[in-house]
C-alpha cells in the first residue's frame, strides 16, 4: 500500500478559515516538534532552512493528537471546524 495515497481516501469539506492557528515563534523555540511525526494526517511540516513550522488545515482529521503532544501550547487557536466543515467520514 502506498503511503502518499493513504491521505487521498478521506473526504473533507474545507473551510476557508483554519480551525487551528499556531504562534510561529513558539515552534521556532521548540526543542521537540513532535507534532511533525505524531500527526496522523501529516499536517505539520518543519522547514529547518526557513526555521518555520507550516500547518495545513485541509487534511486535518480532527483527531486531537497535536493538542495533546504540543507541550509548548503553540496554539493561538485550537477549536473544531465550524459546523458542517472539516473531515467527513463516510464509513469507518
Amino acid at each position: 500500500m502506498n503511503i502518499d495515497e493513504i491521505f487521498d481516501f478521506t473526504s473533507f469539506t474545507i473551510d476557508r478559515e483554519p480551525h487551528i492557528v499556531l504562534d510561529p515563534q513558539v515552534c521556532v523555540s521548540c526543542d521537540n516538534r513532535s507534532c511533525t511525526n505524531c500527526c496522523p494526517a501529516r499536517c505539520y511540516t518543519w522547514s529547518g532552512e526557513e526555521q518555520k513550522m507550516t500547518f495545513v488545515h485541509d487534511g486535518c482529521l480532527e483527531c486531537g493528537t497535536c493538542y495533546v503532544v504540543c507541550h509548548k501550547n503553540a496554539f493561538t487557536r485550537w477549536r473544531y471546524p465550524r459546523g458542517g466543515f472539516g473531515v467527513a467520514y463516510r464509513m469507518t
Partner: peptide
C-alpha cells in the same frame, strides 16, 4: 482496496 483512512485520540 483502501476505502478510507481515519484517526482519533
Amino acid at each position: 482496496r483502501l476505502l478510507e483512512y481515519s484517526a482519533h485520540v
